[in-house]
């Protein structure tokens, strides 16, 4: 069983945070952390593993793309979703490739679509983490195999 998905939600408008977190709490198993400022969100990302970051685009200190770039740096496997206003569309689209966006949603968003994106993003992150864990298990197994091999070789030499 996977642990409870951790979602970070960033928007400088309290009402958006309230609306989206109410939806996620009702319809998903996610543990939702909301932040009014990108700086606070980054502080959280520095210390807590997260499955998904959903961010507004236009915010006072730092825009959503900059925040998601920072998130990619701190936790590359966490999925990144941008939630933008109509007017920011063009600038947002330009930056999509730069931060490897998982998805892009325009306000007003459809709750059903948001829910689908959240659940597939979380699943993707958790699968990525599982694969990583398996790979490092494999690495470890490989390492111990090599150990045994060297010891055997030494024993015979």
């Amino acid at each position: 069983m996977n642990p409870q998905p951790e979602v970070v939600l960033v928007d400088d408008e309290e009402m958006v945070l309230t609306s989206v977190s109410a939806l996620l709490m009702l319809e998903t198993e996610c543990n939702v952390h909301t932040f009014l400022s990108p700086a606070e969100a980054i502080r959280h990302l520095e210390t807590h593993p997260v499955d998904l970051v959903v961010s507004d685009y236009l915010m006072p200190q730092m825009n959503g793309i900059q925040l998601l770039a920072k998130s990619k740096e701190l936790q590359p496997e966490a999925a990144r979703v941008l939630l933008t206003g109509h007017a920011d569309k063009a600038s947002a689209i330009q930056a999509i490739n730069a931060v490897g966006l998982y998805h892009y949603l325009e306000k007003p968003w459809e709750n059903a679509q948001l829910l689908m994106i959240v659940s597939s993003a979380v699943e993707r992150t958790q699968l990525l983490r599982q694969v990583q864990a398996m790979l490092s298990d494999l690495d470890n197994a490989n390492d111990s195999l090599k150990d045994i091999q060297t010891r055997l070789i030494k024993a015979f030499l």
Binding site: M15, V16, S19, A22, K107, P108, W109, N111
Partner: peptide
């Protein structure tokens, strides 16, 4: 746009 988006979403969440 943002307040409307929020209200739209809330209406849906209230129905759910």
């Amino acid at each position: 746009n943002t307040p409307i988006a929020s209200i739209f979403s809330n209406i849906d969440v209230i129905e759910r």
